[in-house]
Write a protein that binds this DNA or RNA. Structure first.
Lengths: 333, 333
DNA sequence: ATGTTGTTTGGTAACGTTTACATTCGTTTA
DNA sequence: TAAACGAATGTAAACGTTACCAAACAACAT
């Protein structure tokens, strides 16, 4: 079929071992080296990575398991992981688990079959809760969401702090009845809620939260229901970009103005958040950095497996925009 | 290291061939089959895909080369390709070539090394123009953009028709000075422009086009420059979602209203297009279908390599929204 | 000269599968 | 009853690499 190392060896008049050494920068004389390289060029030889992987027991491949690449957060992370991986001479296998624990388990098995070097994983809370890293032969770095504390590396946003930041901002702008809409499937929603609650409690304000499935539709349904109730919040904190979009849909459908009828603040600086009205106030996550850092952590763990597990916590930036422009002067507390 | 077929064979008291046959549904008696399956379960055996690929000469892997997954069009296509691939028991290797012919060549080489079964590719016009399918050992399906006619399979939008559709729509709404903004790097921009020109010519109206690099920034710069000139168009047709966003940025920065000061129509029904003002008129592409069809074409080509090359042309749907609501009654032509 | 070292090179056994071929055994057919 | 067949199983040779080991050879110190 295609040209193999043996063909190159014959044309160059050397042994296959020598060709292999030329290809992997082993010690070989300059004369032979050029002869081999010419033969490679002439035949258009390309190494067979399956054979290489089998023999060397190095897959040079990492798995990336997210819920859905169509979520802009994961899109950006994926791109970052891929850039970093290719830079390190590695391949990425992308898996969309759709927030489904069964699919997550299935993909983890697949990663085992691929004998990947490692996995970068954003698990549902179900999987996160019962995750046993020792059952896998590869290291795992959690992203966005945490696994069991201390058992795997992780890179996450400072979610409680970010939740607090949004609430403090809303309070400073004069809002007092601040609702919260959170995803019910990941640890991220819970962590953001904790920050939200803490900030409200500190100011002696009541909280009012709803949990929904992680989809735009679920969020708009929930907000629609909320609006049908006698008294809704002045302002809403929404736990991620998908849900935020659902909230916007529900509000605009109902003919309500943002922030006139209800202020809105959320997570993820997706392109569209700048285009709603005069912009939505959001916490911008360092999406690309999250991917790059995750890949770096994985590589360093591969180099040094005995390292203590690390958790990298990154900070989000508050982008203040028109959706929280305030209701007159802030009332004195 | 990890458990291999030999271990399973020993535990079950059969030969490795029998184990292999159980795993690949070969003919083996029910008694042995269950004994093997028990051994597999007990040992937690997982096949080594590198070894399997090497021996069987089947990589069960396809390459997907796009410019950037962060472009929502390619995000959706990627997700579709991955779904279809996993359904067919195949893996996907995703490559971001950033509209760079050198990177494209590099990734095509990599695909060769991976011995992929096939590649789904959205090439720049440079690579498309000089692409020689016979130089690769795998079939290639072009998506979104066409390669040399008749040399590879392809699935594309009916771009000229879509361009025409937008122009006809604008004319019907009373616009007469209709400008066009197109990407300068793919065949897609050229094809959409052709439809745009044809429709204008048919109505005896003048055309006015600009070509820009495929980025939001390039588009907004171009539109800004355009606005600085003495007379700009009533309406703008914009060749894809990235550029459309740039146009929106330029117009809102300049404090112009859409469609009051300038109407806007474009391609790609990205989430944000519904949120600008009361919505942007766009051609919605069947993004998911494009990915699924591309994968299906690839699979059928793998089954039957001698099939004549096919080009599947899909239609876009015009979503009429407020950005082209018209300037009073249409003037009689 | 001779032994000692070090650096290139070649031969070949793995790596974990699949698969062509040989073997065995039970069943049918003349 | 023997010959002929077919199904189930085992044996061993690939697949294309890498890496271990030994051989060859040059350079150097004795």
């Amino acid at each position: 079929m295609s040209v193999k190392i043996k063909d190159v060896a014959e044309l160059a008049g050397v042994s296959v071992a020598t060709v292999s050494r030329v290809l992997s920068n082993g010690s070989v004389s300059a004369a032979l080296k050029t002869r081999v390289e010419e033969a490679v060029a002439q035949l258009g030889y390309r190494p067979n990575l399956s054979a290489r992987r089998l023999r060397s027991q190095l897959s040079q491949t990492v798995g990336l398991i997210v819920s859905d690449v169509r979520n802009p957060f994961f899109t950006a992370v994926s791109r970052a992981v891929e850039d970093a991986a290719y830079r390190a001479g590695m391949r990425v296998i992308l898996c969309n688990a759709d927030e489904d624990p069964d699919k997550e388990a299935m993909y983890l098995r697949l990663m085992q079959e691929e004998r990947v070097s490692g996995v970068i994983f954003s698990p549902t809370s179900v999987t996160a809760g019962r995750f046993r890293p020792e059952r896998f032969e590869f290291p795992v770095v959690m992203i966005d969401r945490e696994g069991p504390p201390g058992l795997t590396d992780a890179v996450v946003l400072d979610n409680p702090q970010a939740g607090r930041l949004l609430v403090e901002h809303l309070i400073a702008r004069g809002y007092r009845k601040i609702g919260g809409l959170f995803g019910n499937v990941s640890t991220t929603g819970a962590a953001r809620r904790a920050g939200y609650e803490a900030a409200l409690a500190q100011h002696g304000l009541p909280s009012s939260v709803r949990f929904v499935a992680p989809s735009t539709e679920a969020a708009s349904t929930a907000v629609r229901a909320w609006l049908a109730e006698p008294d809704w919040p002045d302002a809403l904190v929404v736990s991620n970009g998908l849900l935020l979009l659902g909230a916007v849909h529900a509000l605009t459908e109902a003919g309500l103005s943002i922030p006139g009828d209800m202020a809105l603040a959320g997570f993820d600086n997706d392109v569209w958040t700048g285009l709603v009205g005069h912009g939505l106030t959001v916490i911008e996550q360092p999406v690309y950095d999250i991917g790059v850092v995750a890949m770096e952590m994985l590589l360093s763990r591969l180099e040094n497996p005995s390292l203590a597990k690390r958790k990298v916590v990154l900070n989000g930036a508050l982008l203040e925009r028109a959706s929280t422009s305030g209701r007159g002067a802030a009332a004195p507390s």
